[in-house]
Amino acid sequence: MPTGVALRDVREQLFAAAERVLLRAGPAGLTSRAVTAEAGVAKGVLHKHFADFDAFLAELVVDRTAQLTLQEAALRAGAGRGDVIGTVTDTLTRLFSSIAAAVLALVIARDGLRARLRATTPTGVPMLTEATWMVAGYLAAEKDAGRIAADADVDMLALTLIGSSHLMTAGGEAPTPDPAAVRKVVTTVLAAVLS
């Protein structure tokens, strides 16, 4: 890498490179050298902006997890409209077909990374916990709209939906979950509480 070349938004450039490596090579292939090579920068660039590689990975996970907050806001805004089963199915299918699933695999694979993330996610598995909150928030909004039974335990429903969807995709060969299988899970889990 030539010296003296100005880099724009180095953090995002490195995060995007890490995503590409993670999607292509999985957690085992995600190294600082692989990330900097993918980003087309010298290895020292990563260490100039982050204390170490684990700090970089922790910030990557925090950044990508924060994107779930934006999705949650859009999801809640749609409460009271459309098909609840279709909305939840689409949400789970997108979640487990996206970089979120790859980041989740990374979090599960690296004990040190999970330990660092306890500051932002004190319980549960980072990324899965926030995804569960996102689905629970949507279900609560649908409950407020009268489309889910008033006595429904939305936290438990969300946990069941996220856990089931994750189990359908964890360690699988297919890069995306089967939407029909996800819909079957969502229909089964929500059948008793839909108004």
Score class of each variant (00 low, 15 high):
residue 62 V to G: 10
residue 10 V to K: 13
residue 94 R to P: 00
residue 195 S to I: 03
residue 63 D to M: 11
residue 72 E to P: 00
residue 135 V to W: 05
residue 148 I to Y: 09
residue 34 A to D: 01
residue 80 G to D: 05
residue 75 L to E: 02
residue 87 T to R: 10
residue 24 R to H: 04
residue 85 I to K: 11
residue 17 A to R: 10
residue 104 L to K: 05
residue 173 E to S: 15
residue 176 T to N: 13
residue 95 L to T: 03
residue 144 D to Y: 03
residue 140 A to S: 07
residue 141 A to M: 08
residue 165 S to V: 09
residue 156 M to S: 14
residue 111 D to P: 03
residue 25 A to F: 01
residue 88 V to H: 05
residue 132 T to D: 04
residue 164 S to C: 13
residue 25 A to M: 01
residue 80 G to P: 05
residue 106 L to R: 05
residue 46 L to F: 02
residue 2 P to I: 14
residue 41 V to Q: 07
residue 123 T to I: 09
residue 18 A to W: 09
residue 156 M to W: 12
residue 88 V to P: 02
residue 23 L to T: 00
residue 153 D to R: 12
residue 164 S to W: 13
residue 3 T to K: 15
residue 78 G to V: 06
residue 40 G to H: 02
residue 52 D to K: 05
residue 167 L to A: 15
residue 147 R to P: 07
residue 116 R to T: 00
residue 73 A to Q: 13
residue 101 A to E: 02
residue 40 G to I: 02
residue 5 V to K: 14
residue 71 Q to L: 13
residue 51 A to S: 05
residue 68 L to C: 07
residue 155 D to T: 12
residue 70 L to C: 06
residue 83 D to N: 13
residue 62 V to T: 14
residue 179 P to I: 08
residue 81 R to H: 08
residue 83 D to W: 10
residue 169 T to F: 11
residue 53 F to T: 02
residue 159 L to M: 12
residue 124 G to D: 04
